[in-house]
Every structure is written in structure tokens, then in C-alpha cells.
């Protein structure tokens, strides 16, 4: 996507976004209403950008039926005909793509999502997770390079989610480019470290979220530390230039480091120098959630 904007009258859904997707799994993150679905639909060619270009291999996705060969989209809400079996549904999709051997392609896709055993039952009897996987199979039947999923984990229970996550992960490893949207950070964290964060229509950050955190140099990194002698360690640390604050309580130390690089190198040295055993060092605000909330405040 290059300088893409999309508006509906006065509502600017997407505001000047430039984004590049590589093979692997990327999480499209943002609060509700941030514009994630709009971005996905523009990538899938369902919506045209009001401004800017959305291209796949340098060919625009809008009004380009050719591009559907390389794209698969799994929408957030989709009515699937309950009376069809999974196999029938996926085969129908294969036929719509004019594949030479729809049954074989469908079988392959269903196998990929681990629905081979259940494929002859009606979709109406499926659990939510199975339905979702059926739709993913339908979106994969033509072996697209790119797979777009809108809130794929919605309403799934933990085991179903794990299955879906493993599936997406393995697809990513095989070289597919996968973009899935979510507003539940916990889910995104487990599937992919690479994120695109959208806030109120604007792209706030891209890349690996841990690296994004390290880019936020204006925020001291916060670490939780436990050692064999917390107080002495605290004294030694506060003498260090890269440390901007140390708090001590029953559970250990909370250290604020204004310079990540210096601190992480200094800590082992200082602990050894003082003869203190370091038992725990844990970054407290590197989670996707913290990164995200910092980005929201920007």
C-alpha cells in the first residue's frame, strides 16, 4: 500500500498509510474502528482507495480480477450455508476459481486445515472453530500467495485458537504472506512478532514489536530484577548513568533504564562486581500490550 487513504464522506477510515507486506505472518493491530477491516478490504480488492495505490506485485488490487488468483480473504462475519458439507463448500469455491481439478485442490486445502475427517458432515453441525477453518480452506483452495484474515480468532475457545495459530504459523513458514487483524493483543503476540499498528486510521508503527519498543528511546525501559542482595544491587545500579530510577519492594527491584543498550551490558558487570547473584531479569513493558498502549498515547 502506498500513501493510501480512504474516506466515506467526512469519515476518514484510513489516513495516508504506506505499508509493505513480506512473506510470513503479520498482525494488523488496532483498536476497534481503527480501520483494520478497511485496510484488508482494500488489499483484497473489494474497496478502492480514495487516494493512493494498493498493489500486489505492482499490480493494483482494485478492479483486477486477476489478482484474486493470488489472494484469499477470510472475512470476520460470513454466512456459510449450513446445509453444505465442508467439502462441497470448498469444492464450490475451487470451481469459482476455475481450477483444473477442484476436488483435488479442495482435498489439499481441507487437509491443510485438518478438516479431512469431518469434511463430509454438514457445516451446520460444526463448532465455531471448524467453521472458521472451513472458510480458511475455501480461501486457500487456489493456493494464493497472500491470505488475509479479519479477526480470525473471534469467539474461539483456547484450543480452537491454538489450532488456528499453529496453522497460520505453518503457512507463514511455507512462504505465504499472511495478514490477520485483531484487537486482542494476547492473540497477536502468540502468533507473530511482526505487526502493523493502526490507530484511528493512521499507521502508527510497523515491524517487530520488541524492536519497536527499543525504538521508543524517550521512554525508559522498565525491568523487574531479583537478586541475592537487592538493596546492595540497587545502590550499585543507581550509581550507573544509564539507570534513571530504582524502586525496591518485597518482590524485588523495579529498574528504569534510560539507555537500553548501556544498561543491559552494565547489569551483568555490576552484579558480578558486587558479588551478587542475579536470579531474575524481566523486561516489564516489552509486551505487545505495553508497546501498543505507548503507541496509542503518541
Amino acid at each position: 500500500m502506498q500513501n493510501v487513504s480512504r474516506w466515506y464522506g467526512n469519515v476518514v477510515a484510513v489516513n495516508d498509510i504506506t505499508m509493505r507486506l513480506e512473506p510470513g505472518v503479520t498482525g494488523l493491530l488496532g483498536p476497534n474502528g481503527a480501520g483494520k477491516t478497511t485496510v484488508l478490504h482494500m488489499m483484497a480488492g473489494f474497496l478502492n482507495p480514495s487516494k493512493g495505490t494498493v498493489t500486489l506485485d505492482d499490480k493494483p488490487t482494485w478492479r483486477n480480477p486477476e489478482v484474486y488468483r493470488h489472494l484469499g480473504l477470510v472475512n470476520e462475519r460470513e454466512a456459510v450455508h449450513g446445509f453444505l458439507t465442508a467439502e462441497e463448500f470448498v469444492v464450490a469455491n475451487a470451481k469459482m476459481h476455475k481450477l483444473p481439478d477442484p476436488k483435488a485442490a479442495a482435498a489439499r486445502a481441507l487437509d491443510l486445515v485438518e478438516m479431512t475427517e469431518a469434511k463430509d458432515r454438514r457445516i451446520g453441525t460444526y463448532s465455531k472453530g471448524m467453521r472458521q477453518r472451513t472458510r480458511v480452506a475455501a480461501a486457500l483452495v487456489h493456493n494464493p500467495r497472500v491470505l488475509l484474515l479479519d479477526e480470525p480468532f473471534n469467539g474461539m475457545d483456547p484450543r480452537q485458537r491454538m489450532h488456528m495459530m499453529t496453522l497460520l504459523h505453518s503457512l507463514g513458514e511455507r512462504g505465504h504472506t499472511i495478514l490477520f487483524s485483531s484487537h486482542i493483543l494476547e492473540e497477536v503476540e502468540q502468533v507473530s512478532g511482526t505487526v502493523q499498528v493502526i490507530v484511528a486510521g493512521r499507521l502508527a508503527a510497523s515491524g517487530d514489536y520488541r524492536e519497536i519498543r527499543r525504538l521508543m528511546t524517550n521512554r525508559p525501559h522498565v525491568f523487574a530484577v531479583q537478586s541475592s542482595d537487592d538493596r546492595r544491587l540497587a545502590v550499585a545500579l543507581i550509581a550507573e548513568k544509564s539507570v534513571s530510577g530504582v524502586e525496591i519492594d518485597a518482590t524485588g527491584l523495579t529498574v528504569r533504564a534510560s539507555d537500553y543498550g548501556s544498561f543491559t551490558r552494565a547489569l551483568p558487570r555490576i552484579a558480578l562486581g558486587e558479588g551478587i547473584r542475579l536470579r531474575k531479569l524481566l523486561p516489564s513493558d516489552e509486551s505487545l500490550e505495553s508497546v501498543f498502549s505507548y503507541l496509542l498515547e503518541a
Partner: peptide, 16 residues
């Protein structure tokens, strides 16, 4: 800890 310090590597996490 010794190994990390010897190699002057930035220690990011150490946890059970």
C-alpha cells in the same frame, strides 16, 4: 551471568 559479562553482551532476560 559470567558468560554474558565476558562477552559483553546486552542481557535482556533471565528468568525461570
Amino acid at each position: 551471568l559470567q558468560a554474558v559479562a565476558d562477552l559483553e553482551l546486552p542481557l535482556h532476560r533471565l528468568d525461570q
